[in-house]
């Protein structure tokens, strides 16, 4: 399955993801800190809860991506739906749905490339499924 070339680039992909994440982490910290310190009238917050289609497959990948999103200040995983492949992300600075979705999916792409020996399948559902509460199971969908 995995060619020697992809195996050779694996450590490099891991290191580059760690560096990229460290940079994004520090930048997000600066943004949030600055916005808290701004006077109320000029705060740039526009929070939103967005359903982001995700490409993760295994338990490890789902856990890691939601932890990494939460760890970045300003974004917070509220819930996931593995059945519909959706991450529900609360964002602090969301100008548009596409902006947040792009940000999260870039992080997920990089994470999956670092995590998997060969990147494999990175496709996501393009259209958001209509998620409705389940019938009688307590808690229903999106637990």
């Amino acid at each position: 399955m995995s060619s020697p070339a992809s195996l050779a680039s694996w450590p490099w992909r891991m290191v580059s993801f760690l560096l990229w994440y460290a940079k994004a982490f520090v930048l997000a910290n600066v943004y949030v800190t600055l916005d808290v310190l701004r006077p109320k009238r000029r705060m740039r917050m526009s929070p939103a809860i967005i359903a982001v289609p995700a490409a993760s497959a295994s338990d490890t990948e789902w856990t890691l991506i939601s932890c990494l999103i939460t760890l970045t200040p300003g974004t917070l995983t509220l819930s996931i739906s593995r059945e519909h492949q959706i991450l529900y992300v609360h964002g602090m600075f969301v100008d548009s749905r596409e902006a947040l979705v792009g940000e999260i999916q870039e992080m997920e792409d990089r994470m999956l490339r670092a995590l998997r020996r060969s990147p494999g399948d990175l496709t996501r559902p393009t259209r958001l499924p209509d998620v409705v509460p389940g019938e009688e199971t307590p808690g229903g969908e999106g637990r």
């Binding site: 929070p47 939103a48 967005i50 932890c67 939460t70 509220l78 958001l128 808690g139």
Partner: peptide, 30 residues
């Protein structure tokens, strides 16, 4: 990370609505 996810999720399940300025809420449909 795990702690803040648990707090936020349980807050949502316990009817803590997002503030007025929250412009989109996809989770409400569920």
């Amino acid at each position: 990370a795990v702690g803040s996810m648990a707090i936020a999720r349980s807050g949502y399940l316990n009817n803590s609505r997002p503030a007025e300025i929250t412009h989109t809420d996809d989770l409400i449909k569920t």
